[in-house]
Design a protein around this nucleic acid. Structure first.
Lengths: 160, 160
DNA sequence: GACCTAGTACTCGGATAACGGCTGTCCGAGTTTATCAGG
DNA sequence: CCTGATAAACTCGGACAGCCGTTATCCGAGTACTAGGTC
């Protein structure tokens, strides 16, 4: 079970975008994060499709958050990039083989699928409780309160 | 994020093995579950490597559980088949780019990595609390107490 | 009749191809800004 | 000097190859049982 690498870039991009209200181009975000520009843009498109960021075309265009960072959960970002289908997909083994159960008696999900779904729910809940603002605050605290200020300064100086 | 399909087969296989103490060949399990024999065997090998099942060669060989089903957690089975590396792997983006943080100041994991790890821990804990015996009991309850008896009967009749 | 030996059939285990999805990239459509000509 | 149109530059968005991992399969090594021959 391997998560798409773009999830990391998307989360960092959202944290960065939370530090400004002006549009930031994908190429600028890629430069700041040291990631491939074209591929980074691809993941930002996914965020745009999910309604997490708003894209502006044109010369001073770029991406902005559609909502306050405190109202964007990490779960939304992960789902936007990595897809929202559950990791475990029941193939209905119970219906196959010599002891297969008829489909009409399988209204409830299989017990194994229920267990896996419960685990996924726990995972989702943990991520849903964390907002982009929380992540920005935690990153800032890790750097003794300098990281986000540096980001804001870099965004303005690089833009000017 | 997609989990290996073999996880489902492995869990069903463990539930089936919990219903008997005699070795069950991989081909027999594949027949019962309606899965490809060779590929099913491959995943059973993974369970064997992880010490969850014991393999016996020879004419009356097959697989048996190494422990009571109540002492085998679903997490162990999932990890044996799907690997034990976490889904999210931090690429240390914070160390890259113009605002990269020196490695010597990165003793703690990144805040984003911590959040993802916490979610994975919640997922793992949910699966660790469920044993193969629990799954067997739940499947049995779903079928009004006939499923596991049918499995036991099928295993004995097919073997004889 | 009991015991030993050779054969056989069955099992697991690892090594080997084929497909799907993530990774990575590019160019076209659209928009905003700056420039330049005209009034 | 102000206004309008034109052109240019920059942006996003979707469509196009490449590589790695899961999927799927096969055959070889090893073991327990069975049958036959011998004492």
């Amino acid at each position: 079970m391997r998560m798409s690498n773009g999830v990391e870039w998307a989360l960092h991009s959202c944290v960065t975008l939370s530090q400004t209200q002006e549009p930031v181009p994908a190429a600028r975000l890629a430069e700041l994060h040291g990631t491939p520009p074209a591929y980074t843009a691809k993941h930002l498109q996914a965020l745009s499709r999910a309604g997490i960021v708003h894209s502006t075309a044109g010369q001073i265009g770029g991406y902005t958050l559609t909502r306050p960072a405190s109202e964007i959960s990490a779960l939304e970002v992960v789902r936007a990039v990595d897809g929202d289908e559950p990791a475990y997909r029941c193939a209905e083994i119970r219906q196959r083989g010599p002891l297969g159960i008829p489909a009409e008696r399988c209204s409830r999900p299989c017990a194994i699928a229920r267990a896996m779904a419960a685990a996924q729910d726990a995972w989702s809940l943990a991520l849903a409780r964390i907002s982009v603002a929380d992540l920005a605050a935690a990153i800032d605290a890790d750097s003794d309160g300098t990281a986000m200020a540096d980001v804001r300064r870099w965004l303005t100086t690089a833009a000017g």
